[in-house]
Design a protein around this nucleic acid. Structure first.
Length: 613
RNA sequence: GCGGCAUUAGCUCAGCUGGAUAGAGCGUUUGACUACGAAUCAAAAGGUCAUAGGUUCGAAUCCUAUAUGCCGCACCA
């Protein structure tokens, strides 16, 4: 439709110029927009405002000239000049209603665009270290990254979803040592108290809980094991209760045979097996969040030597060295990232010979460009300071302009307005898995994706859990369920039969695709058509601006348009409310179109569209 | 000290490339069910767009300061 309008306005401009009413001038952009207020037309052009200067004419006069020469077209009802010089174009009702048929014909492909032109884009998100369960913040990156991936796909990109598993650094040993220390404590408790592994597990958890609730540390006697644990490992420890659970798991499985084993062997065994268990837990949680990944990329793989005896990290270093971006200083190997705008140069290999996290990332990001054209990393706002150095690395490797970070602000977890205390020191953290169990994936995802990524989110568990009109996700889902109910009734299908047939089949039984739509003339019907017509542009804008949150707003607006239509227009004839059969059919088509776009919008943000609630 | 994000209605947020009377939900107030799903609808009240300058036909939007809040500023990951 935009193309049609564009052509008509350009024709009008040319006509007005050749008629001598306007001077000759070129316009690159007609400034076509959809007015916020439908009273100002279905489309508006600001071309008169834009070209006032170059034409040396009052914008209003230019607008009048263009409006006067706008060619006749079946799509156009009328054109008006308004305000300082807007050219407002009103579509004919019949043309606007065609959107209902278009939606029904295109189904899930409605709103697809070729914006991406098949460009291969990788979205990397979540990528939490495999040393603990996911928390609410990861939930936001999951919702954001997954929704973005879905939107990019709909906008014509070839999308790869990736999870980077940081299984190489120090934190892995910290993790292994933490489990190991807890295992030894379990053995100690079993020995001292003469109880079994299960009872010892409970005792250690009780000790941990006492520590957590002892805010001012006034009762050290209530948590001796936690204190001993922290004293032996210091800052290089993970204090969470899940570490105790892992240790107990190994005690149940292996018994006490690791107590006298070599400390290093014990740590490695627990580290590797714990890693597998944690990764499995993370996968499960992502699954519960309805997100999946095409690639789980292991950091360790970057250090594996190939046939030529070099690793990906070696090769990345060699490449940077050839280009003269590496140098030695203070026994460390540095990357000259300041050449690419970073604040300071960065260390790749430390004086002790160990590789930094950044070293992995240089090789990792190079690897990405062997697979895709463009990279979007979804990171938490606390990693902001890390962007410049990775961009420096990708620039140095020759991928300038192809590296992008989508930064998401942090999430505050609340319950009834009170902050839920999460402390790394204390090891208290609400796992995302538990949140999903309590509030459900639909409400969680909708809430986490519903704000612009650079806006902080206060996630109040009780508020998100509430199943009433204060929770927008149910407003949208209710509209969908309501439509399904009407369609079932129209098709004479019971709920049981509906499950087998599927809504698309039911809808086509309720109303044929080629029914006459011109009978839909109520303002709420026109408004609904108009709202559906916005979807295509919306998808493109969400993809272009990496802003899937707009879909949640649109879903609410579309649900609102439907509810208004439903209240104003009787769809099925009933006692005291007769409806002409042709009108009823056309309204069913409108209902079906609304249903499909509601479901499509929800699917792009990973929220289900229930057929009944 | 340097950098990023935020600041818009009582609350939570939209406002896309600078455009028309700054919008929505919640909350408040008032109406609407013997009717296709009331988890709904219709309507009202509610705003010095943090502050001060600047740019221009036009600024919530761009620029420069200032204030407040959050997050960063490792040879950690």
């Amino acid at each position: 439709m935009v193309e049609t309008i564009e052509k008509l306005v350009r024709a009008a401009l040319a006509e007005a110029q050749s008629a001598g009413e306007l001077p000759e001038f070129e316009v690159a952009d007609l400034g076509l927009e959809r007015p916020a207020d439908s009273a100002n037309g279905d489309w508006t052009s600001t071309v008169a405002l834009r070209s006032a200067k170059v034409a040396h004419m009052a914008p209003r006069a230019i607008a009048e000239a263009i409006a006067a020469h706008l060619p006749e077209a079946p799509e156009i009802d009328r054109v008006e000049v308004a305000g300082p010089g807007f050219v407002n174009i009103y579509l004919s009702v019949a043309a606007g209603n065609e959107i209902f048929r278009t939606v029904r014909e295109q189904g899930e492909d409605f709103g697809r665009s070729d914006l991406g032109a098949g460009q291969r884009v990788q979205v990397e998100y979540v990528s939490a270290n495999p040393v603990g369960p996911l928390h609410i913040g990861h939930g936001r990156w999951a919702a954001l990254g997954d929704s973005l991936a879905r939107v990019l796909d709909h906008a014509g990109y070839e999308v790869e979803r990736e999870y980077y598993v940081n299984d190489h650094g120090n934190q892995m040993n910290t993790f292994g040592n933490s489990v190991s220390a807890r295992y030894l404590q379990l053995a100690q408790i079993m020995d001292e108290k003469g109880i079994d592994a299960h009872a010892a597990h409970e005792a250690l958890i009780a000790d941990w809980a006492a520590f957590v609730s002892d805010e001012a540390d006034e009762h050290p006697e209530s948590h001796p094991y936690m204190d001993a644990f922290r004293e032996s490992l210091g800052a290089d420890s993970y204090g969470g209760d899940y570490i105790i659970d892992l240790a107990a798991h190994f005690m149940e499985a292996d018994g006490t045979r690791w107590v006298d084993a070599d400390a290093s062997e014990r740590m490695i065994s627990f580290r590797e097996r714990g890693y597998k268990l944690m990764l499995e837990d993370i996968r499960q949680t992502c699954d519960d969040m309805r997100t999946s990944f095409d690639v789980w990329f292991s950091e360790r793989s970057l250090y594996e030597k190939d046939a030529s005896g070099t690793s990906a990290v070696d090769r990345a270093f060699a490449r940077l060295r050839e280009q003269g971006y590496l140098y030695e200083k203070d026994d460390a190997l540095w990357f000259r990232s300041t050449d690419f705008g970073d604040d300071k140069d960065r260390v790749l290999v430390k004086a002790d010979g160990a590789y930094t996290y950044f070293a992995s990332d240089v090789a990792y990001h190079w690897n990405k460009y062997e697979r895709v054209d463009h990279v979007i990393d979804v990171w938490g706002a606390d990693h902001h300071g890390y962007i410049a150095r990775v961009r420096a690395a990708t620039d140095a490797l020759g991928y300038e302009g192809k590296f992008e970070v989508l930064l998401g602000q942090l999430v505050n977890l609340l319950r009834n307005g009170q902050p839920v205390r999460m402390s790394k020191r204390k090891g208290t953290m609400v796992p995302l898995r538990e949140l999903l169990d309590e509030v459900g994936a639909d409400a969680t995802r909708f809430t986490l994706v519903s704000k612009s990524s650079n806006q902080m989110i206060d996630f109040d568990i009780e508020a998100v859990k509430r199943q009433d009109n204060t929770n927008p996700v149910y407003y949208v889902q209710y509209a969908h369920a309501r439509i399904c109910s009407i369609l079932r009734r129209a098709a004479g299908v019971t709920a049981e039969e509906a499950a087998e047939l599927g809504m698309d089949e039911i809808a086509s039984r309720a109303c044929p695709i080629d029914c006459d739509l011109s009978v839909l003339i109520d303002p709420t019907e026109t408004a609904l058509a108009r709202k559906l017509g916005e979807f295509g542009d919306l998808v493109e804008s969400c993809a272009r601006d990496r802003a899937p949150f707009r879909l949640t707003h649109y879903a609410q607006e579309l649900a609102g348009s439907f509810h208004s239509f439903y209240t104003a227009c009787q769809v099925l004839p009933s006692e005291g409310r007769p409806v002409d059969e042709a009108v009823s059919k056309a309204r069913l088509a409108a209902c079906d179109a609304a249903r499909r776009v509601l479901a499509l919008t929800l699917s792009l943000i990973g929220v289900s569209a229930p057929e009944r609630m």
